[in-house]
Structure formats: C-alpha cells, structure tokens
C-alpha cells in the first residue's frame, strides 16, 4: 500500500500546542499543502500574528517572522516590496486582523499588495483566554461579554471578507469553514487559489476561515463543529466573494 494522504513537507513533525479540536491545525495543513503544491516552500516567508498562531514558526519549514499585534499586513508589505521574488503570506486571527490591525489589513488590501493573507476567524480571542472579538456573534458569551455580545454596547460582528471584497485593490477574497470534510476541501481549493494568485503576480489574496475554539467556546469538539454550521455560517456566509481574472498591474 502507498500513502495517499500524508502530512505536507512544509510542516515539521512537532506536536502542535493547539487545544484539542482547534481549527488552526487544519488551516496549517492546508497552507502547507499549498506551499508544497506550488513548490514555493524555499522561497516563502510567513508572517506570524500575535495570538494562538504566533507559534506557527514551530511548525512550518519556511522562514517566518513574528509581527507586532495586528501588523502582519504592514510587515508583509515591507517584505514583498523589497523582495518581490519571495512568496509572502500573513497568518492572522480575528483579534489581530479585524480589531487592532484593521487599518493595516484594509490598506494592504487597498494597495493591492501581492501577498496572501490567511484569516482565521473563531469569533473569540483565544490566546488571552476567551475575550470578545470584533467577530464575536451577537449574544455570544465571552469573558468580556459575560451577558452575551450586546448590539447596543458592542455593535455588530464585522464581516471582513465582504468588507475587503468591496475594495478595488483586492484580487481574491473568499470565506470557508473548517468543519465538514467537504467544507475543508473547499477551503483547501481557495487557499491554493490564493497562493496561485500571488505566484502569478495577480495581487492581494485573502481567505477567511471559520474555525472552532472549543476551549473558549466552552464546548466539546463535536459541539464546536456543529456551532460553525448552526451559528457562524448563517452570519458569515461562505463563498468566493471576488476573483479577478486579470491583474491590475501594468
């Protein structure tokens, strides 16, 4: 028998620190498979966020830098502008990207920087212990919204993919869910497409992934997977929101 499914070469053998059932591992694998597929591992530099995924450099076999909280798109901009031959990807959580780093993501997207941003949205601050995120759903209890997110005091959850898709500068914007095998395979396809856009100099690519945080949701892995379908997807619809066929670059 031959292996038909193995860990991508882009990832090493370390045991990941993520909690049981956390979606980061699957997203890491999909990114790793994309780096393998396009044979770009040895010319890729990743930008790690502040949050649970800050330790991603312990798992990827490519060069990685750690950016200040929310600044990965700016760091990625500085990198891609100075070495356009390298493949640059930023990996960010919802607090990092949609809260403290909102200006950085919007402007990197608007400039059409030829980088790939992987956005992991689990509707909560994971590493700091489950506080309210800009993507926390209305009514969702977190350690800083103990009575549930309140529309009157906290506002609505932000839909990043839709927001970025409105910018002329973005080339590829999609949202997928890391829950069922079918949805994970769709996410894989989009992540591949996002890296392909960069390889082909097509401009800014962005994939948002709805993932679980069983620990901070106070749920089992199974319940968390169900929550994605029952609560997250109705508010954060899945799909490819934008896909340019031709690059804006002259």
């Amino acid at each position: 028998m031959k292996p038909v499914f193995s860990k991508p070469k882009a990832l090493n053998d370390a045991v990941m620190h993520y909690c049981p059932g956390c979606g980061h591992g699957v997203v890491h694998r999909l990114v790793g498979e994309a780096l393998d597929h396009f044979d770009i591992l040895d010319r890729t530099v990743g930008v790690a966020p502040v949050g649970c995924a800050v330790l991603m450099y312990d798992y990827f076999n490519c060069d990685i830098i750690e950016a200040p909280h929310g600044r990965p798109p700016a760091v990625a901009t500085g990198m891609k502008r100075s070495r356009p031959d390298l493949i640059i990807f930023a990996y960010q959580g919802d607090g990092d990207l949609a809260s403290i780093g909102l200006a950085e993501i919007v402007h990197a997207a608007n400039r059409g920087e030829n980088v790939t941003v992987i956005f992991v949205n689990n509707t909560v601050y994971g590493m700091t212990g489950g506080q309210m995120a800009p993507t926390t759903l209305l009514g969702q209890q977190t350690t800083t919204s103990p009575y549930g997110r309140n529309l009157n005091t906290d506002g609505y959850p932000i839909r990043m993919a839709e927001m970025l898709a409105t910018l002329e500068g973005t080339s590829y914007v999609a949202r997928h869910a890391i829950d069922t095998p079918a949805n994970i395979l769709r996410a894989r396809k989009s992540i591949f497409r996002a890296f392909e856009m960069q390889v082909k100099d097509m401009g800014f690519s962005f994939v948002e992934l709805l993932t679980t945080c069983p620990t901070n949701w106070g749920m089992s892995s199974r319940e968390s997977i169900r929550r994605i379908k029952e609560e997250l997807i109705p508010y954060f619809p899945l799909g490819v929101f934008k896909e340019k066929e031709v690059a804006d670059y002259i």
Partner: peptide
C-alpha cells in the same frame, strides 16, 4: 527602489521591520 506611503506611522515602522528582516536597508 520602492516608496510606500503608509496608512500610519504604525504601518510605516512595521513595513520597515518587514523589509529589514529580509536583509535590505530600509
């Protein structure tokens, strides 16, 4: 060379951080 007018000084210094990490003078 490349000139980028950043969205803020927060972004400027982090763009410098990124470029510098790749070994170029910025």
């Amino acid at each position: 060379g490349e000139f980028v007018q950043a969205e803020s000084e927060l972004a400027s210094i982090n763009m410098v951080l990124g470029a510098s990490a790749l070994g170029v003078r910025s």
